[in-house]
C-alpha cells in the first residue's frame, strides 16, 4: 500500500505508523468522563471507507489524516493535521 504524504510524496506503507481512528476529535481536557470514555473506548469498526490517523515515522514525521477503504486499501484522501495543515493550505492557495 502506498500513502501520499503531502510533504514527501507517495511512499510505501512501511514508512508510516498507524495512530488510531482519525474520525474522532479529542475532547477538551476538562470534558466529562462520559465524553472521554466515548473518545477512548467507543469505536465503530467499518468495513469500507474509514478515516484514520497515520504518523510518517520513517519520513518527515507529519501527522496525517487518511481516508481509506479498510477492505480494498484504496486511499481516497490524505491531508495534514495540525499547524502544518494551515501553512500547507496557505502555500497551496498561492
Amino acid at each position: 500500500m502506498r500513502i501520499g504524504c503531502p510533504v514527501c510524496g507517495d511512499r510505501d506503507a512501511h514508512e508510516f505508523t498507524y495512530q488510531g481512528d482519525g474520525s474522532r476529535t479529542t475532547p477538551p481536557l476538562d470534558a466529562d468522563q462520559d465524553q472521554w470514555f466515548a473518545h477512548v473506548y467507543e469505536r465503530t469498526n467499518p468495513m469500507g471507507r474509514h478515516t484514520e490517523c497515520w504518523l510518517h515515522t520513517g519520513g518527515c514525521r507529519a501527522v496525517l489524516i487518511v481516508e481509506r477503504d479498510t477492505v480494498t486499501h484504496e486511499i481516497f484522501s490524505v491531508r495534514l493535521a495540525g499547524a502544518q495543515a494551515a501553512i500547507h493550505d496557505e502555500e497551496a492557495g498561492q
Binding site: T17, Q19, T26, C53, L80, G82, A83
Partner: peptide
C-alpha cells in the same frame, strides 16, 4: 522515548494545533 514523542506529536496535531 519514540512512543512518547509520537504520542505528543499526535496530541499536538490533532487536539491542540493552536499551541505554538
Amino acid at each position: 522515548a519514540a512512543l512518547v514523542l509520537a504520542k505528543m506529536e499526535y496530541w499536538h496535531a490533532t487536539a491542540w494545533p493552536e499551541l505554538r
